[in-house]
Structures are given as C-alpha cells and as structure tokens.
C-alpha cells in the first residue's frame, strides 16, 4: 500500500496483555493535568481521559473469565474524514478534527459547556469540568507546563497527548527533518503500560507497528482485517482509531452489540 501523506494516528490495545493495573490512567492524569477532587467516590463525576473497564464473560466458576479494557478517546473518523459524532455536533467549533493527524482536539477556551458532544459520544469519553480544578498544596509545581489546565464549565477528553506531537515536530524541525520517527511521538499511556499492551503510531504507515497489527482495510474505513482485532461499536459507523486485540471470542463480541442469534462475523456498518 502506498504511504498516504496525511497521518492517521491510532492506537492498538492488546487486551490479552492488559492486566488492569491502571498505570495508563495514572500516567494520563499526570501528563495532562487532569483535575481530581478530594472525594472521587462518585465515578460519574470523575474525569478519566483514559478509563479501564472490567469486562466479564458472565459465566459461573470455573468458566469465569475477565478482561480489562482501557478506553481512551476513540478519535473517530466517521463515515468521511472529520465526521466524528462529537465534531459535527459542537455548535461553536470547539472540538475539531485535524486532517493532518486524524486527532480530535478540544479547544478549552472555545468550549462554552453545552455538553452536546458528551451526549453524542457513545464511548462516554468526554468529561465535563463540574468544578474548577483545585490542586493539593504544592502540586501546582508538578503540573505539566505543556498542557493547559481546564477551567470549570468546559468539556475535556483524551487528546492522544497532542502536545507531545507538537514537541516532536518542533524537535524534528530544529534538526532539519520533516518526518517523525515512530518512537518520537508516543502517548503517555503507551509508554506507561508495564505489560506493553498499548501500541501507538500512524495507521496510514505500513511500517508502523499499529498498521501491521490490525491491517486496516481502507475500503471499509479502516476496519481491521486481523481476525483478532476489533473496534468498539464498529456497527455505529463511528470508525474509531483505537483498535483492540483479543484472542478470546467473547471479548471481541463484547466490543459491539449483536442480536441474540447474530454471529460476530456479520459486521454490517449501518451508515454509508
């Protein structure tokens, strides 16, 4: 396949490797200055750009099986580039689809907090700042200077550590290069995963690991051709850029909704 000029950054998460340790969540929060409160017991109010879900096959012992599923923002491409569920609905262009990288951004100073994007996202990857961030004493000094903290009343979400992309580009520019090497731009969660379950790279670049792992089918909006790979809610036509790998059939089936007697192979994309 010819290497397209525009990049399409994406992620492959191997669920067979994920131990559910939560390092990715911690790394993400530290990297992106994600605010937290003293009492985080109500998870519906917690901001978790990367959230690890615990899945179960629902069978009794001894056939019980569990699986942990890390869920960042899917950076959906939609049926045509930029037709992400959230980007199309934002009334003030506060969330944008970057054609060059495929990354869905959130412009905090533009967002006025209507939360329509949250309603549109089936992955619930978008979070609202119900409070202004309050950092424990002295913690301001540990905030990342590369990511702006968010004010009350705006929506935020995973940015695929876009600031790292910008810094990598700057570094390359200073060194007189135009292209980034695969390892130059990696997200915090990818690097933090002790099991090496997360892989990040350009889905348009056949040399990148993510491409080789899922073999996206360009004729079907990047649907994986690797039989062990799947995307969450494939049938909705959101075309996420986050892929999951699992050798277990029940895990792959949990990734989407199926009618009772429907086989997993029948993946008809509804739209388009």
């Amino acid at each position: 396949m010819k290497h397209k000029k525009a990049k399409k950054y994406g992620m492959v998460i191997n669920l067979d490797k994920c131990t559910g340790c939560g390092s990715c969540m911690v790394a993400c929060m530290a990297e992106n200055n994600v605010p937290f409160r003293k009492d985080e017991s109500d998870k519906l109010l917690s901001i978790t750009w990367m959230r690890v879900y615990k899945l179960t096959n629902g069978k009794p012992f001894p056939n019980t099986d569990i699986c942990y599923l890390p869920r960042p923002c899917m950076h959906c491409e939609g049926q045509h580039e930029g037709h992400s569920p959230c980007v199309t609905v934002c009334p003030a262009v506060a969330t944008d689809y970057n054609i060059e990288t495929g990354i869905v951004s959130q412009i905090y100073t533009r967002c006025f907090g209507c939360r329509y994007c949250m309603a549109s996202c089936p992955y619930k990857a978008r979070y609202f700042n119900w409070w202004d961030p309050v950092w424990p004493d002295g913690m301001e000094k540990y905030l990342s200077p590369n990511v702006s903290p968010r004010m009350r009343g705006v929506v935020e979400k995973c940015s695929f550590c876009f600031h790292r992309y910008q810094m990598a580009k700057e570094k390359a520019f200073m060194e007189g290069r135009r292209k980034l090497k695969e390892d130059e731009y990696q997200t915090a969660c990818t690097q933090a995963c002790p099991a090496g379950a997360i892989t990040f790279g350009d889905l348009n670049n056949p040399n990148h690991a993510v491409y080789r792992m899922v073999k996206p089918d360009p004729k079907h909006h990047g649907r994986p051709t690797n039989p062990n790979a799947f995307r969450l809610l494939e049938r909705l036509g959101t075309n996420p850029k986050v892929y999951y790998l699992s050798s277990r059939e029940w895990v792959r089936r949990v990734g989407d909704n199926y009618l009772k007697n429907e086989s997993i192979a029948k993946k008809t994309v509804h739209q388009g």
């Binding site: 199309t88 609905v89 934002c90 009334p91 003030a92 262009v93 506060a94 533009r110 967002c111 006025f112 907090g113 209507c114 939360r115 329509y116 609202f128 700042n129 004010m151 009350r152 009343g153 705006v154 929506v155």
Partner: peptide, 21 residues
C-alpha cells in the same frame, strides 16, 4: 451552559453543521 459568559460563541463561532447552532 457551563460558561454562560461565552454563550455568544454559538453565534460568533457558529458551526453551521451543528443542529444546536
């Protein structure tokens, strides 16, 4: 809206593809 003082953004920075606009 979360940031009422920015309410005018919906007009000024209108995304004409959004139903909410």
């Amino acid at each position: 809206i979360g940031q009422p003082l920015r309410g005018w953004f919906i007009f000024w920075h209108a995304n004409v593809h959004s139903m909410l606009t």
